[in-house]
Design a protein around this nucleic acid. Structure first.
Lengths: 305, 305
DNA sequence: AAAATGTTTTTTCACGATAAAAGACATTAT
DNA sequence: ATAATGTCTTTTATCGTGAAAAAACATTTT
């Protein structure tokens, strides 16, 4: 089992959806760009579609024979990247409790438990290390620094620094910049969500990320833009984990975003600063309340991950 | 050739130096902590020292028989980590010219050229990616973003943000904090270096790093502290590369550091801010002048790394 | 001749294997 | 009883290998 063909399977599923919508298929290179895969993969997809009787395929003629059925799709779990699988497993262990600061992380054990090779785990840990939650001891194990209050405070300190600067840069952008149209669209989405917040509150996290990324991009600084990956990761798992008052929290956040957007559109730096500060402060508090104080948890054995 | 024993060789060399200084050897565990290696490695070292007639070794009695000769040492190049070897090779290619933005980086080619496995190269590239100079295309190659003017500006923007904040935090540290003693020591080293700048100017870069790391540590923020790795890396290679007016530049920098140190000791936030700004500005200019403008270089083929 | 398809080569991704190094356990010396 | 040494086990670092996927090259179609 040297490499899973999840790229193919995922692209295949997406191609089925495309087929369902458009009832036709473009040329191989075009399909490749559309799906974000190479022509090699496209041809594998087409080959299977022919096999399963979805299309008739002869050179450039691709005739749709029938609409895709649910059982045509590959199971969702087979379309995940190894990196995603490892990340999920790792984060589950991290957040499941019993994961205290100072604990050792064992590559081999992790790999065995997840059922993957050590190389993939190693590479994941190296990538993950930039989030500041783990640290490597040379020629030895990784050490978990813990998802602590200190971590949250350090993270939000940088976030506030970066976002205040980005927001100011955003407000200073010229009228012609396309970001204003992007902002308008996001504003509309916010208004829509605000109206239907009761039923759609769980869609906020995705909107939140898009909004903040738009602002950070105005900094034109790769380190600021990249840092949002850290924030996004933390908030992603935080949302999944802390469901207390989710609706209320998101309702408040949407309202704060709207004020923030209005401030940006006013180009009034004072207003921008105030709206940004206010929103980031409540975001920080939300994060902080979900982190238990050190020592208050039930920890049977803190030596091993 | 599955794993080189550079840890052993490096520790062995350091142990020889220790032997030369102290004319004696402590217990195995103690030696392990001293050298920063495990007892397993310590025992290999002792075994070889016995073999080569440096010591007589019987259980806890370790008698020094002779002083180490130059040929007792392992060659320096055999003590490097694979990661160091790869980094050097990679940076040489990067700075040797012909490394233009947009160029593709080929793991296999790099590995072959350096003479190492692909895994090590992959891991290096993943670690290196946090410096913001390269970027991964999913399931495909890495892209070189280039050591450009834009990069230098983005880097220094963050540096200035972080250092101003750290310096302010530093100045606010209580009298009892041990950092003041560290600062005093660094000040002395600066004065000493200033006096002998003509002959020792090349020692500045190491002192520079220690000084700035001390300041950044006052932020008590892992993201700020970690970011200094990016700066250190860039300046490390920059120093090796741009030797123009090195003495003058370093002389100026030492003087600026002394003003900066005085400002910190005064605890006057206004002075700290001014001294920090001034120094960072000249550091930025030094960096910028060493980056050639885009298009002004002799680039035979920019498609491949 | 431009863009598609067909074919071949190269590169990436992930694994298992193995030596180096760390770590754990057992035994002996002070 | 504490701390060392002696021995054994586990983990990390690195490689070579092979399938998946990308990319390059050749050929055909419009």
């Amino acid at each position: 089992m040297s490499k899973s063909n999840n790229v193919y399977k995922d692209a295949y599923n997406r191609c089925l959806r495309l087929l369902d919508e458009t009832k036709s298929l473009p040329s191989e290179p075009e399909l490749g760009t559309l799906l974000g895969v190479s022509r090699t993969t496209v041809r594998s997809i087409l080959a299977r579609m022919e096999e399963t009787g979805l299309i008739a395929w002869n050179k450039r003629s691709k005739t749709v024979l029938r609409t895709p059925r649910p059982d045509d799709f590959f199971p969702e779990e087979e379309t995940d990247t190894l990196a995603e699988i490892i990340e999920r497993s790792f984060m589950r262990r991290l957040l499941a409790g019993g994961a205290e600061a100072g604990m050792q992380i064992n590559e081999l054990e992790l790999a065995r438990e997840i059922g993957v090779g050590t190389t993939s785990v190693r590479e994941f840990l190296i990538r993950f290390s930039r989030f500041g939650l783990i640290e490597k001891r040379r020629n030895s194990h990784w050490v978990l620094k813990g998802f602590t209050r200190a971590f949250a405070l350090e993270l939000t300190e940088i976030r506030e620094m970066f976002e205040l600067r980005s927001a100011a840069a955003f407000a200073a952008l010229p009228e012609e910049s396309p970001v204003w149209a992007d902002l308008d669209r996001l504003e509309d989405e916010h208004r829509l969500l605000a109206r239907e917040i009761a039923s759609r509150f769980n869609e906020f996290s995705e909107l939140d990320e898009r909004f903040h990324r738009l602002i950070h991009r105005a900094s034109h600084n790769r380190f600021i833009v990249d840092f949002y990956d850290v924030i996004a990761m933390i908030f992603h798992y935080h949302y999944q984990w802390n469901k207390a008052q989710e609706r209320e929290r998101n309702e408040v956040a949407v309202a704060e975003h709207l004020v923030y957007i209005a401030a940006l559109k006013s180009r009034d730096l004072g207003k921008v600063d105030a709206a940004c500060r206010k929103h980031l402060k409540s975001a920080r508090n939300t994060l902080l309340t979900s982190i238990p104080e050190a020592g208050s948890r039930n920890v049977p054995d803190a030596r091993r991950a």
